[in-house]
Design a protein around this nucleic acid. Sequence first.
DNA 1: TATATTTGTAAATGAAACTTTACTTTTAAT
DNA 2: ATTAAAAGTAAAGTTTCATTTACAAATATA
Lengths: 66, 66
Amino acid sequence: MKNRLKVLRAERDLTQAQLASETGVSRQTINAIEKGKFDPSLPLAFRFARLFDLTIEEIFEDEQEV
Amino acid sequence: MKNRLKVLRAERDLTQAQLASETGVSRQTINAIEKGKFDPSLPLAFRFARLFDLTIEEIFEDEQEV
DNA sequence: TATATTTGTAAATGAAACTTTACTTTTAAT
DNA sequence: ATTAAAAGTAAAGTTTCATTTACAAATATA
């Protein structure tokens, strides 16, 4: 699943560490999600959406893998 | 996190087993999500959204738990 | 009321998300 | 060219999502 976190972060001048602390996860978790190592949980996806004032669909692009 | 899966299923006359098979998970997973035992993964949430032709936000209601 | 279907639940297991610690590489600013 | 900050990565561990098997309870239908 692709995501626009890196761009959204850049637009708001946030570091991975800042985004991590604002969403209550570790910096490594943010890095792993940005690098496509794994997908966030649904609750974490909602926290990203709330923080950036976007829908989940505007942040994450599903690639219908099933 | 609340969800409207049970109602959406009822509207389309689907059993838990049918919804499970259409989204590629077990019946027990559907049951557990409906009963609030746990939240679906983000990819599974996208599959529900695609199947019901709704956004994730229209199916799942976040209760800002963090 | 008997029977079939659906739903609820539980235990054990596996897979994926996420953590902590720690270190290296890259980028930006002196 | 140094230095500091940010990003990348890795290993080991915990928690959460999801599986299989199995059975009980509820709902529908004959």
